[in-house]
Amino acid sequence: MSASLALDRRRELAYARDLARAFGGALLFSLPLLMTMEMWWFGFILEPLRLAVFLLVALPLLFGLAFYAGFSAQHRGLGHALLDTLVALAVGAITAAAVLALFGVLEPGAPPGQIVGQLTLQAVAGAMGALLAGRQLSAGEEDIGDEDQAAYPGELFLMVAGALFLALNMAPTEEMILIAYRMSAVQVIALILVSLTVMHAIVYNIGFPGQEAHTRPFAAFVHYTLAGYGLVLLTSLYVLWVFGRTQGHGLAELVDAVVVLSFPGAIGAAAARLLV
């Protein structure tokens, strides 16, 4: 252990470059959220319970992303994924603190609960971006990540991650609920069909492993598109709950909002192989 802890200049520099890429990914993904005022307000509007659940649920999700994607090319295996998860959270928190301070959103005299709330939400989003940085910012020069080895549960996990990637950026805004209010039952059903169709088209074209999509199209629809859309609906419901958007809504309005948010979610899930 003492040998591996010795300072190796080349290794440190290589890692610093990976880290810079992680910061880039964090900025790229979380900037829309950092510039959304609802996200600042959620820091003190959300009950602490929701924040705690959000952070705790995010940990295994980030770990999964670190395992399948990550921001460093040399990293393989569970131990590295765990370390990458923590590093990504640090990167997300530093990015959020720096940008929000720059924007004058962080108030020096604010109660600690408010600042921690604001930073926690943004840090998780930033960490997601950091872990996807390898794929987003490496310009294809090196293959980062193990996603090609993903088995069926892994594929479903990547779909959930892809759904979150887009849904998290949209869910904080008032518009999700507003759109749901404006839509009639027919339009909601049409949106479900459109979501499924677009999702299947993307899944089919990107091509999941095993070439199942080409030999057995119906099975591929059930195994990937339908299963994926179900998970997207649950993911959307969870995100809406975290942001307190489920409160005070009747079941029908809630379902409408879930379907609305699941539209970007479905596209994110289907395109997970491009994003992750």
Binding site: S4, Y15, G77, G79, H80
Partner: peptide, 17 residues
């Protein structure tokens, strides 16, 4: 065998935790 993590990595990981 995966290469040992850089010191910077341990530092950032500790900060994250």
């Amino acid at each position: 065998a995966p290469p040992a993590p850089a010191l910077l990595e341990w530092a950032m990981g500790g900060l994250g935790l």
